[in-house]
Design a protein around this nucleic acid. Structure first.
Length: 136
DNA sequence: GCCAACGTTGGC
DNA sequence: GCCAACGTTGGC
Protein backbone atom coordinates (compact mmCIF):
# COMPACT_ATOMS: atom_id res chain seq x y z
CA UNK A 1 0.00 0.00 0.00
CA UNK A 2 1.18 3.47 -0.85
CA UNK A 3 0.33 6.82 0.64
CA UNK A 4 -0.44 10.06 -1.16
CA UNK A 5 -1.21 13.71 -0.75
CA UNK A 6 -3.30 15.92 -2.98
CA UNK A 7 -3.50 19.67 -2.78
CA UNK A 8 -6.44 21.88 -3.39
CA UNK A 9 -7.18 25.54 -3.06
CA UNK A 10 -10.29 25.51 -0.82
CA UNK A 11 -11.72 28.41 -2.80
CA UNK A 12 -11.92 26.22 -5.89
CA UNK A 13 -12.45 22.81 -4.29
CA UNK A 14 -12.43 22.14 -0.57
CA UNK A 15 -12.46 19.15 1.73
CA UNK A 16 -16.06 20.06 2.58
CA UNK A 17 -16.92 19.88 -1.10
CA UNK A 18 -15.49 16.38 -1.25
CA UNK A 19 -17.34 15.30 1.88
CA UNK A 20 -20.56 16.60 0.45
CA UNK A 21 -20.10 14.76 -2.84
CA UNK A 22 -18.54 11.77 -1.13
CA UNK A 23 -16.66 10.77 -4.26
CA UNK A 24 -14.94 12.92 -6.85
CA UNK A 25 -13.06 12.57 -10.10
CA UNK A 26 -9.62 14.04 -9.45
CA UNK A 27 -8.83 15.39 -12.90
CA UNK A 28 -7.24 18.38 -14.58
CA UNK A 29 -3.73 17.57 -13.39
CA UNK A 30 -1.34 18.91 -16.02
CA UNK A 31 2.07 18.20 -14.61
CA UNK A 32 4.09 15.14 -15.57
CA UNK A 33 5.44 14.37 -12.15
CA UNK A 34 1.99 14.64 -10.60
CA UNK A 35 0.54 12.52 -13.38
CA UNK A 36 3.05 9.78 -12.78
CA UNK A 37 1.98 9.65 -9.16
CA UNK A 38 -1.67 9.46 -10.20
CA UNK A 39 -0.80 6.46 -12.36
CA UNK A 40 0.76 4.66 -9.41
CA UNK A 41 -2.25 5.02 -7.15
CA UNK A 42 -3.95 1.79 -6.25
CA UNK A 43 -7.45 1.06 -5.04
CA UNK A 44 -7.87 1.89 -1.35
CA UNK A 45 -4.59 3.77 -1.04
CA UNK A 46 -4.98 6.53 1.58
CA UNK A 47 -4.77 10.12 0.33
CA UNK A 48 -4.08 13.08 2.57
CA UNK A 49 -6.12 16.10 1.57
CA UNK A 50 -4.20 19.38 1.86
CA UNK A 51 -5.60 22.88 1.68
CA UNK A 52 -3.24 25.37 0.09
CA UNK A 53 -3.64 29.12 0.32
CA UNK A 54 -5.00 30.50 3.61
CA UNK A 55 -5.38 27.19 5.42
CA UNK A 56 -2.06 25.54 4.66
CA UNK A 57 -3.03 22.34 6.46
CA UNK A 58 -3.84 18.70 5.92
CA UNK A 59 -7.49 18.46 6.87
CA UNK A 60 -8.72 14.99 6.02
CA UNK A 61 -8.07 11.54 4.67
CA UNK A 62 -9.51 10.25 1.44
CA UNK A 63 -9.18 6.94 -0.31
CA UNK A 64 -8.58 5.94 -3.91
CA UNK A 65 -11.79 4.44 -5.29
CA UNK A 66 -10.77 4.18 -8.93
CA UNK A 67 -7.32 3.80 -10.38
CA UNK A 68 -5.98 5.95 -13.21
CA UNK A 69 -8.11 6.32 -16.32
CA UNK A 70 -7.94 8.80 -19.20
CA UNK A 71 -8.72 12.31 -17.97
CA UNK A 72 -12.20 13.17 -19.31
CA UNK A 73 -11.09 16.81 -19.58
CA UNK A 74 -8.16 15.88 -21.81
CA UNK A 75 -9.40 17.22 -25.14
CA UNK A 76 -6.29 16.55 -27.19
CA UNK A 77 -6.12 12.89 -26.22
CA UNK A 78 -2.79 13.39 -24.57
CA UNK A 79 -1.69 11.03 -21.89
CA UNK A 80 -3.29 12.81 -18.94
CA UNK A 81 -5.08 10.72 -16.36
CA UNK A 82 -7.55 11.11 -13.51
CA UNK A 83 -8.41 8.98 -10.49
CA UNK A 84 -11.42 8.87 -8.21
CA UNK A 85 -11.16 9.57 -4.51
CA UNK A 86 -13.69 9.34 -1.69
CA UNK A 87 -13.64 11.28 1.56
CA UNK A 88 -12.86 8.92 4.38
CA UNK A 89 -12.58 10.93 7.59
CA UNK A 90 -11.64 14.27 9.07
CA UNK A 91 -8.40 14.65 10.90
CA UNK A 92 -9.23 15.33 14.53
CA UNK A 93 -6.87 18.30 14.42
CA UNK A 94 -5.69 19.65 11.06
CA UNK A 95 -1.96 19.27 10.59
CA UNK A 96 -0.67 22.66 9.57
CA UNK A 97 2.29 23.36 7.33
CA UNK A 98 3.94 25.04 10.33
CA UNK A 99 3.66 21.88 12.39
CA UNK A 100 5.06 19.81 9.56
CA UNK A 101 8.02 22.17 9.29
CA UNK A 102 8.66 21.89 13.01
CA UNK A 103 8.88 18.13 12.79
CA UNK A 104 12.46 17.18 11.92
CA UNK A 105 11.55 13.75 10.58
CA UNK A 106 9.23 15.34 8.01
CA UNK A 107 11.85 17.61 6.50
CA UNK A 108 12.19 15.39 3.43
CA UNK A 109 8.51 15.49 2.53
CA UNK A 110 7.82 16.51 -1.04
CA UNK A 111 5.29 18.94 0.38
CA UNK A 112 8.22 20.96 1.72
CA UNK A 113 10.72 20.21 -1.02
CA UNK A 114 8.48 20.91 -3.99
CA UNK A 115 5.92 23.43 -2.98
CA UNK A 116 4.26 23.58 -6.38
CA UNK A 117 3.58 19.89 -6.81
CA UNK A 118 -0.15 19.15 -6.47
CA UNK A 119 -0.11 15.35 -6.30
CA UNK A 120 2.66 13.56 -4.46
CA UNK A 121 3.62 10.38 -2.68
CA UNK A 122 4.06 10.26 1.09
CA UNK A 123 6.39 7.85 2.87
CA UNK A 124 4.68 5.41 5.22
CA UNK A 125 6.56 6.76 8.24
CA UNK A 126 5.64 10.30 7.31
CA UNK A 127 2.02 9.32 6.90
CA UNK A 128 2.04 7.80 10.36
CA UNK A 129 3.77 10.82 11.87
CA UNK A 130 1.09 13.05 10.40
CA UNK A 131 -1.65 10.85 11.85
CA UNK A 132 0.03 11.15 15.22
CA UNK A 133 0.22 14.92 14.91
CA UNK A 134 -3.48 14.99 14.06
CA UNK A 135 -4.35 13.42 17.40
CA UNK A 136 -3.19 16.26 19.56
C1' DG B 1 1.24 42.39 -2.75
C1' DC B 2 5.57 40.29 -3.44
C1' DC B 3 8.63 36.84 -4.75
C1' DA B 4 10.83 32.15 -5.31
C1' DA B 5 10.35 28.05 -7.77
C1' DC B 6 9.35 25.99 -11.69
C1' DG B 7 7.00 24.95 -16.12
C1' DT B 8 6.11 26.46 -20.87
C1' DT B 9 6.70 29.04 -25.03
C1' DG B 10 9.00 30.94 -28.78
C1' DG B 11 12.90 33.25 -31.04
C1' DC B 12 17.36 32.34 -32.53
C1' DG C 1 19.18 22.85 -28.33
C1' DC C 2 19.63 27.03 -25.63
C1' DC C 3 17.77 30.62 -23.12
C1' DA C 4 15.00 34.80 -22.26
C1' DA C 5 10.41 36.01 -21.37
C1' DC C 6 6.41 35.01 -19.38
C1' DG C 7 2.70 32.57 -16.65
C1' DT C 8 1.28 30.00 -12.54
C1' DT C 9 1.43 28.20 -7.95
C1' DG C 10 1.74 28.85 -3.35
C1' DG C 11 4.19 30.52 0.77
C1' DC C 12 5.34 34.68 3.20
Amino acid sequence: MNYWLVKSEPGSYSWDDLKQKNEEVWDGVRNYQARNFLKEMKLKDPVLFYHSGKDKAIVGIAEVTQEAFPDPKDQDAKDWVAVKIRSERDLKVPVTLDKIKQEDSLSEMLLLKQSRLSVMSVAKEDFETILKLSES
